[in-house]
Structure formats: structure tokens, C-alpha cells
Design a protein around this nucleic acid. Structure first.
Lengths: 144, 144
DNA sequence: CCGCTATTGATACTCGGTCTCAATAGTACA
DNA sequence: TGTACTATTGAGACCGAGTATCAATAGCGG
């Protein structure tokens, strides 16, 4: 994804475009795989940036709020961040290497309606995620 | 759920039935709502037990492993434990009061197959959870 | 009842994330 | 271009959840 575009989105909501935010956004736009906040922080520090750890967390929170970033849960309870294409997306996560594939088109709306009926909940969202082993890790496993 | 039955399941897998384990299991069987490990620990301590914090975590882990206990993710990333009826279940969580409703019959198998086809992942599991506001919290909100 | 070994409690520690607060730097406006 | 207002920042203390270590204890099979 394009860092400039992400920064635009920040400005659109009335947030300031600052040096540290730019650095964080550029760092995460360069990533494919899900990452942790500390990975981003360490990378920036290694590159000589003086951006603080709190700022990295704050910036990631902002992006999650803007739905530009999503959180991925792992079965073990840990989680990472991933860039999201706009729209309603879900993730398929490789439990071996962590690769994430996004997909659209979950057919859970009918289920949500039925649940709302039955439980009288006002349903406001859902979380759907698949776990498995990606093709690469499967062949790597087979090779061992 | 019945504490004795849970303890049986532990024995069935070759684990010992110890005093601390019995206490933890009894404490969680008495609960309806999702709870954290520390809530259980504090409750035991308040009741005069000498069970350690680590043991509470270890016992909960065992039960998660046996699928007698499930983890519930909240949208904010925090999570709690809930007792599970046996079988494949999912949760509907009230974001206001934390009440959890279990449900069965997610229709995601077709989606899983399609994803497996398209991505060449070997899909091994999924996580589906709905968030919303339960009937009680809705009327409480309306009253304010 | 004995002995083996799983389990335990205490404690120190890690990891991810938040809070506070004085210092700094975007931005709107003159 | 300068100024003032206020959002944002970095440092560092802190927090909650969970894990690792290790010597002491206690189930359980015989």
C-alpha cells in the first residue's frame, strides 16, 4: 500500500502529519507479513530514528481506528498487525510461517440474522479467521 | 458444567487429580461469564486456598488443550476464558457486559473449501465470533 | 507403604501495551 | 514570515497477562 495515501487519510480526519508518523507509516507499508509493534519500533531504531515506542503504538492504534490496519489473532492468543485493503476483509493465517492471505465474501450475514433473532442481541460485528498451513510450509514439511 | 466430569477428563488423559486442580476446576465450573486467570486466582486466594498463580494458568491451559475451555477474544484484543460444551462451538459476546452465548452450526465449511482451493492452504481450523449488545444492555442503555 | 515422577508455589522475568508529563513541532492565522 | 495554540512527542515508569526456573511436595502404581 502507498504510504502517501495512508498519510492523506490521517490528514482527512484532522490529524497532523508528523515526522514520526511518517516514519511509522512508511515502515509498515514496506511490509507484507503481519508484524508486531516492537518489530516496527526496532526497525526504526536500527535505522537511526528517534521515534519512541509509545509513538509506534499510538500510530498503529490510529491506523487500526481508521481501518487501514487490522489485528490478526493467532490461536495461541498472540497477535500481530496487517495492512488491510479497504472494505470488509478477513484473514487466512499460516500457523507455521505467519503469512496472511486476505479474503472477502464471508457468508455469515444469514447466521448473524438468525442469532440476532434468537438471542435478541444487536449484532454489531464479527471476527472470522482461518488457520492452516500454506503451500510453501507444506512442501517444506514434506521435505523434512 | 460438572466439576467431577471435568476432573474425570483430566484423569482420562493420564493427568493427576490434585488438590489445586480440583479447586481451580470447581471455581470455574461455578462461573457463567467469561473470566480471566487472575479472577480465578484471586477468588481462590480470598477463599483461603494456597494455590499459586502459575498453577491456575497451567490448569486453564490444560483445559483449553482438552477443549473443555475456550478463549474469547474481545475486539480490543483482551481475552477471557469460557467453559465450553463439547463439540464445535462459537461465541456471541456482549461488548458491554461481557455475557457470552454459545452457538453451533457455523456455515463456513464451504468457504473453507473454496479458500483451500484458491490458496493451496491446508486449512486446519477457524475462529468465528460475533460481537454485539445483549438485550439487557440495550434496555439499560435506552433507560439512560 | 515406597519410590518415582508429575505437579506445585514462589519468585523473577518477559512481552505487549498504556500513562504521565514536560518538551517539541504542526498548523492556522495574522 | 512570524506567532500562538494545541496536538503530538520521547522517556521512562508502570501494568496485566502469561512463562520459566527450581527446589519442595504429593499423587499414584506397585
Amino acid at each position: 500500500m502507498d504510504a502517501a495515501h495512508v498519510l492523506e487519510s490521517l490528514r482527512d480526519v484532522g490529524l497532523r502529519i508528523t515526522g514520526p508518523r511518517r516514519e511509522v507509516v512508511e515502515a509498515i507499508c514496506a511490509r507484507e507479513m503481519p508484524f508486531s509493534a516492537d518489530e516496527v519500533y526496532d526497525e526504526l531504531r536500527a535505522a537511526g530514528s528517534s521515534t519512541g515506542r509509545a509513538t509506534v503504538f499510538r500510530t498503529l492504534d490510529l491506523l487500526v481506528g481508521l481501518r487501514l490496519l487490522g489485528r490478526v489473532h493467532r490461536p495461541d492468543g498472540s497477535h500481530g498487525y496487517v495492512l488491510r485493503e479497504p472494505g470488509h476483509r478477513h484473514h487466512l493465517v499460516c500457523s507455521t510461517c505467519g503469512t496472511v492471505v486476505e479474503f472477502q465474501g464471508c457468508n455469515v450475514a444469514a447466521l448473524a440474522d438468525e442469532l440476532a433473532d434468537r438471542t435478541q442481541f444487536r449484532i454489531e460485528g464479527h471476527w472470522l479467521e482461518f488457520f492452516g498451513v500454506c503451500a510453501d510450509c507444506q512442501s517444506r514439511d514434506a521435505a523434512d
